[in-house]
Computed example of a mutant assay.
Amino acid sequence: MIRIGIDLGGTKIEAIAMDARGAIVERLRVPAPQAYRDCLGAIGELVTAIEREHGRGCPVGIGHPGSISPATGLMRNANSTWLNGHPFARDIETTLGRPVRLANDADCFTLSEAVDGAGEAAHIVFGIILGTGVGGGIAIDGKLLRGAQGIAGEWGHNPLPWPNESDQPAARCWCGQTGCHETWLSGPGLARDHASREGGKLDAAAIFAAAEAGDTAARQSVALHSDRLARGIASVLNIIDADVVVLGGGVSNAPGLADRVTAHLPDFLFSDIVQTRIVTHRHGDSSGVRGAAWLWPAAAK
């Protein structure tokens, strides 16, 4: 059976056809329209194009930014702001003429890595996105945990735990709170923190590269980032005690990040042992769209 996965991003929409073994047999990408109705139309055209080659009526899963309110059915908190306030689930099902399964993009990443990725066969997987923002998802036995509000795993907008003097001044987050994980652990958050101490305008990739080259200030910033990430992860593990934490997003590709976080965990985890594995993604940029395709079999188990 062919499943269609859609990754609705802010700059592009990606669609795949995935077979029963998890192999991607077709991939299409188009620029993401910056208007709500145009996004619906673009997704419809991608599904039609895939079904010309693979047959009609394929199940469709969609990963999207933000989340859908279980109370109103409206999209909320999407950085693609043209989606917010619209009944996206209802409208896309009308557009495609069939039931559609949807999940937040970080949830889709987590599902992909839990089903056949770096967290394969683990009981509890906590997936983390570290990019321009910070998000997360939780999968238990290959199924997403949604939660009463539909926000399970959204740790990016919890405050950084166990703060110390190095964590000042805290930055205001776009969500309205101060000192969220996102303001410290995202790529822009790392760049802001480095600039606050050292000046300049290095982005996260340049800071990691400078640290690898031996720059003392960059190494300090990277060490602080790893310590903060370990604190954030430990606060989640103290609640859900995941078997595996999978790191994704552009920041996750920093050399040695998983090892540095693992080394810091004993300082914060409420346990005499640390058996949770901190690992980097297996499927890279394809995890989100693959997870969208996996929404059907995973949700049907």
Rank of each mutant, 00 (worst) to 15 (best):
A15C: 05
A15G: 14
I16D: 10
I16G: 12
A17C: 01
A17N: 09
A17K: 09
M18Q: 14
M18T: 02
D19G: 02
D19T: 06
A20H: 13
A20W: 08
A20G: 13
R21M: 14
R21P: 01
R21Q: 15
R21I: 07
G22Y: 03
A23S: 13
A23E: 15
I24P: 09
I24R: 12
I24M: 14
V25G: 07
E26A: 15
R27V: 00
R27T: 07
R27D: 04
L28A: 12
L28W: 07
V30T: 14
P31M: 05
P31K: 11
A32S: 15
A32C: 15
A32D: 05
A32Y: 11
P33F: 05
P33M: 05
Q34R: 14
Q34Y: 05
Q34H: 15
A35R: 14
Y36H: 06
Y36C: 07
Y36R: 02
D38P: 03
D38S: 15
C39R: 12
C39I: 12
C39W: 00
L40P: 01
L40M: 09
L40Q: 11
G41K: 13
G41L: 13
A42P: 03
A42S: 12
I43G: 03
I43Q: 01
I43R: 09
I43A: 02
I43S: 09
G44C: 07
E45A: 15
E45I: 08
E45G: 13
V47Y: 05
V47T: 10
V47E: 07
T48W: 11
A49N: 09
A49V: 04
E51C: 03
E51M: 09
R52M: 12
E53I: 01
H54K: 02
H54I: 00
G55K: 03
G55I: 01
R56N: 07
G57L: 08
G57E: 10
C58P: 00
C58K: 06
P59H: 01
V60Q: 07
V60N: 02
G61C: 08
I62A: 06
I62S: 05
G63L: 09
G63Y: 08
G63W: 07
H64L: 14
P65M: 00
P65N: 01
G66A: 03
G66L: 00
G66H: 00
S67A: 15
S67T: 10
I68C: 08
I68N: 13
I68M: 11
P70D: 09
P70Q: 06
A71K: 15
A71H: 14
A71W: 10
T72R: 02
T72I: 06
T72L: 10
T72E: 12
G73A: 10
G73H: 05
G73N: 01
L74H: 03
R76P: 00
R76V: 13
N77G: 02
N77S: 12
N77I: 00
A78R: 00
N79P: 13
N79K: 06
N79G: 10
N79V: 04
N79R: 07
S80G: 04
S80F: 00
T81V: 14
W82P: 07
W82G: 00
L83A: 01
G85T: 02
P87T: 07
F88I: 11
F88Q: 10
F88R: 04
F88M: 08
A89E: 14
A89L: 15
R90G: 15
R90L: 13
R90P: 03
D91Q: 04
D91I: 06
I92Y: 03
E93G: 11
T94M: 11
